[in-house]
Amino acid sequence: MQIFVKTLTGKTITLEVEPSDTIENVKAKIQDKEGIPPDQQRLIFAGKQLEDGRTLSDYNIQKESTSHLVLR
């Protein structure tokens, strides 16, 4: 499924993911596309910070959901 990640600069990154993917996996995909190390990434969805060990389905992130990327 596709999800979108919006950066603070207003850029939207499109990612191909599975509901069973962990947040860690998603951060690795963002690193592949954008070159941002996962330890600098914070992903926010529905006002919550997403934890590495959880999956997209844990957070009820469905296709075409948009989460926000904040850099630390």
Rank of each mutant, 00 (worst) to 15 (best):
E16M: 13
I30G: 00
T7F: 15
D21Q: 04
S67H: 12
E34I: 15
I36A: 03
T55S: 08
G47A: 04
R42N: 13
Q62P: 10
L69T: 02
E51Y: 07
V5K: 01
K6A: 07
I3T: 01
L56P: 01
L69E: 01
Y59M: 03
R42W: 11
Q49Y: 13
I23L: 04
K48F: 09
I30S: 00
D52P: 06
Q49K: 10
Q49I: 15
I13W: 05
I44D: 06
P37I: 05
T9R: 10
H68K: 07
I61M: 08
R54D: 05
T7Q: 06
Q40D: 09
N25F: 12
S20G: 11
H68P: 08
I36Q: 02
K33H: 09
G53K: 11
E64L: 12
K6D: 08
V26C: 03
R42K: 12
R54S: 07
V70I: 14
V26S: 00
K27E: 00
K33V: 12
Q31P: 01
E18N: 13
F4G: 04
T14E: 09
A28D: 06
I44F: 15
L69W: 03
K33I: 14
T7D: 06
V26I: 12
T22P: 05
S57C: 05
E24S: 12
Q40W: 08
Q49H: 10
P19K: 06
T12Q: 07
K48C: 09
E34V: 14
E24N: 07
S65R: 05
D32I: 13
K63T: 11
S67R: 11
R72A: 13
Q62W: 11
D58P: 00
F4Q: 08
T66S: 10
V70T: 08
I61A: 02
K33N: 05
K63N: 14
L8V: 12
A28K: 15
I44L: 12
R42D: 11
I30V: 05
T9E: 11
L15H: 00
L50W: 03
K63S: 14
D52C: 05
E51C: 09
E18L: 15
T55A: 06
K27Y: 03
F4I: 11
T55D: 03
E64G: 15
G10H: 06
K63G: 14
T14Y: 08
S20L: 09
T12L: 13
D58N: 05
V5C: 03
T55Q: 06
G53N: 12
T7I: 12
K27N: 01
V26A: 02
T12D: 04
N25I: 15
Y59R: 01
T66E: 10
P37W: 06
D32P: 02
I44M: 13
L50Q: 01
I61T: 02
T12N: 05
K48A: 09
R54C: 10
K29S: 04
T14I: 14
T22A: 04
K29I: 06
K63R: 11
D21W: 11
K6G: 04
N25Q: 15
Q41W: 05
K11N: 08
I3W: 02
S65W: 09
T55R: 10
L69P: 02
I13V: 05
V26P: 00
E18H: 14
L15F: 04
L43H: 00
I30F: 02
L43M: 03
I44H: 09
G47N: 06
K29G: 03
Q31E: 09
T14K: 08
M1H: 05
T14W: 08
V5W: 02
E24Q: 12
V26R: 00
E18I: 12
Q41K: 01
I44K: 04
V17H: 02
G53M: 09
F4K: 09
G47P: 01
P19A: 09
K33Y: 08
D32W: 10
S67E: 13
V70Q: 10
S65L: 08
I61G: 01
L56A: 01
I3V: 06
Y59F: 04
Q2M: 13
K6R: 12
A46D: 14
L56H: 01
V70C: 10
K11G: 08
R42E: 13
G47D: 06
K63M: 11
L8T: 13
Q41D: 01
G10Y: 04
K29V: 04
S65Y: 08
E34C: 14
K6N: 07
I23F: 02
L50E: 01
K6M: 12
T7V: 09
K6P: 01
L71C: 05
Q2Y: 13
A28Q: 13
S67C: 15
K33F: 08
T22R: 08
E24K: 11
Q40A: 08
P19I: 07
E18Q: 13
Y59K: 01
S67K: 10
L8S: 14
Q2N: 11
N60E: 07
P37Y: 05
K29C: 03
R72F: 14
R54F: 13
K27C: 02
E34D: 06
L50S: 01
M1T: 04
T55E: 03
I36C: 04
T55I: 06
L69V: 07
S67N: 10
A46K: 15
I23Y: 01
L50A: 03
L15Y: 02
D58L: 03
G10R: 03
I13P: 00
G53E: 09
T7N: 05
P19L: 09
G35K: 06
P38K: 14
R72Y: 15
V26Q: 00
K63Y: 10
Q2C: 09
K11V: 08
G35W: 03
P37F: 05
Q31M: 12
M1P: 02
G53F: 12
E34Y: 08
L15R: 00
D52K: 04
E51P: 02
K63D: 12
V70D: 07
L8Q: 14
S57V: 07
D39N: 11
Q2H: 12
Q49R: 09
Q31H: 14
N60V: 04
T14M: 13
D52Q: 04
K27H: 02
K29L: 10
Q62K: 11
K63E: 12
T66V: 13
K29W: 05
T55P: 05
K27I: 03
D32M: 13
Q49F: 13
V17C: 08
H68W: 15
I61W: 04
G10V: 02
